[in-house]
Design a protein around this nucleic acid. Sequence first.
DNA 1: TATGAATGAGCTTTCATTCAT
DNA 2: AATGAATGAAAGCTCATTCAT
Lengths: 199, 199, 199, 199
Amino acid sequence: MSPRNIIRDQRVREERIEQILNAAIRVISTKGIGAASMSDIAKATGISIGNMYHYFKSKDDIFAEVLRQGQLNYGHNLSLLEKNTELDTYQILHQFACDWLANPINWAYTIMLQSARTTVSVPHHIRQDVTDRFTVNLQPMARIIERGQSQGHVVDGDPLQLAFYFVSLIQGLTLQRAPGYEIPVSINVDQIIRLFCPL
Amino acid sequence: MSPRNIIRDQRVREERIEQILNAAIRVISTKGIGAASMSDIAKATGISIGNMYHYFKSKDDIFAEVLRQGQLNYGHNLSLLEKNTELDTYQILHQFACDWLANPINWAYTIMLQSARTTVSVPHHIRQDVTDRFTVNLQPMARIIERGQSQGHVVDGDPLQLAFYFVSLIQGLTLQRAPGYEIPVSINVDQIIRLFCPL
Amino acid sequence: MSPRNIIRDQRVREERIEQILNAAIRVISTKGIGAASMSDIAKATGISIGNMYHYFKSKDDIFAEVLRQGQLNYGHNLSLLEKNTELDTYQILHQFACDWLANPINWAYTIMLQSARTTVSVPHHIRQDVTDRFTVNLQPMARIIERGQSQGHVVDGDPLQLAFYFVSLIQGLTLQRAPGYEIPVSINVDQIIRLFCPL
Amino acid sequence: MSPRNIIRDQRVREERIEQILNAAIRVISTKGIGAASMSDIAKATGISIGNMYHYFKSKDDIFAEVLRQGQLNYGHNLSLLEKNTELDTYQILHQFACDWLANPINWAYTIMLQSARTTVSVPHHIRQDVTDRFTVNLQPMARIIERGQSQGHVVDGDPLQLAFYFVSLIQGLTLQRAPGYEIPVSINVDQIIRLFCPL
DNA sequence: TATGAATGAGCTTTCATTCAT
DNA sequence: AATGAATGAAAGCTCATTCAT
């Protein structure tokens, strides 16, 4: 087999994997993590159940990868925001919150993340990895807040703790947005950011 | 005609029901709502699976009752705090947050509540009831905040929205406290309340 | 204990047994023999499940007794008809068919009888007893038919066989009358009897 | 892309379905419709319980299909007999009765049909479909009888009603033939047909 | 690689029967 | 006699995973 074919096969394989992961998060976001079956994901991907096992060795494996990519992506986006020197801290936090709350897929990620961390039947290594990446992802937010404090835009206090509170608040609000069962209280992002960045 | 003590039987029955509900919340808090089986709850209660159905007509029934009692209890405690005129708003919010974060059972309740609202396989009426009670339970918190605003202790803004943010923040933090997988960032309740009650 | 009390107890016991048997046939006729549970029958009788076992040693025992009494009753009524010398054979058969088809309880008995005879899980002795009593109950009908033949009212042929056909026809028609699922063909009893008693 | 022979797969699948349906009617005919479990049918088919659900989505689904095929087959055979111009009405009815009573599988079908129509726990749509097909299947028999009447072979009366009586008689007799519990009265088909086609 | 049939363990639920009171 | 809690075996069904093709 020519090297070109090997490379092509590798690319096809990676595309398949991405298709599966996209299907998985889509299914999870509509059926919940507990009710999302291999059959559902296979159907959503458009391939057979058996074929799924050529790309992932188990259902847990798929979930772990969905979470990994979701968290890596989250961290990446946050780093980009951190490096954007055109925005002040208020604007960064505002955009972060708006982006997060606007995208329905984040609802699914947040639920998965909480489920994974709090469910005993999820394997230890997955839970640990998720926790570790969450902790790592707090760092850029802490740096953003620290910068804001040095500019007098953000309230005093340990930046890491404030980052933890801020992210927990956004996550808490995200979880409230269950489709079809909305809490009848609107969310005012400006007001939320003002808690951390008072005028 | 019956040689049974009806009063005693009734009491025993109520105790059993409470044993089951306690076992259920214990199991759910360790295995997650999706993986908590009747078998698990029966074993935790110390009775047979079949006998569970003398007290609850289905698994959903148990879950609904656990949630109902948890939310009613929460609302009751919050109302007590609201009526306590010896405490100012800062103190009320501080005690509320401390109480909530200190009691490990609240972790389980918070997980159940989120699971119930976001899991499609949970029956509609349960999800609706949980959502409704959550909304109702926001009211005393909104009144506490409104009182704080009138005394100049709390930041400006719609009291109901602020209550929603505050409760979501506390819930978000609660969910982070997964036993064995703690985020290595300590929580400073005073600092959290200060976001809403700045000096 | 005085003899009077023993007799009274005995009478109470027999009434209870009859209450249970009546409840049983009522439940069976509405839920079907397969779905009729001890709990259903107990509730219909107005006593507790446990108490049922003071009067019958098993569910099969109840069913067997329902069948036994139903068949004995059937045989008794048939004998009365047989002895009624005021009616000719046509009139006897007509009244028999009308009586049988008019009383909804016979529908339940017929279904039970067929279920009992054709269901493997019904104990052997019950099935045998039902079959034996059915066979015995053919005799008075055969005698009625034989008498009719000697008077020239009934078609020729072995009286027992004709009795068998006649009863099977009535039973077959009875089974068709499933409440809510009637066959839209009316039954003309005169026409049926005329098959056996041509003008 | 698939290394499977789709044509062959489809054929194998259809064979499996037929195997299951055959096993089902076999089990039902020995245990009764109420006691026939998926486990029994699976064992009789020689496959696992879980695998049954690749071919039928529920137990009811299997029963419905068994009944449907049985009734369609019955109607088809009856239509063939109706179109056979070489036989007169007596001969047609005679052959119909002989065929039906000779084939033991008809005993099973008749039991299933009656059970389905008279058992409350059987879903409504199945009961309705069975009733409807039974009614439809009365039509060819009514036409056969009507033709016989116009030739003076059959007794007077509404042909549909007579068809109903005739079929009920044959069904009633069929149900009597419980293997191992036979009523000790022989059946003379000629004599039965003579009730409807007197000399 | 791709398929979907096949399996087996697990789930929730029902129910006849027993038992302590 | 009377109660209903308790049990355990069975039911129908689901699903992650394996396997032959």
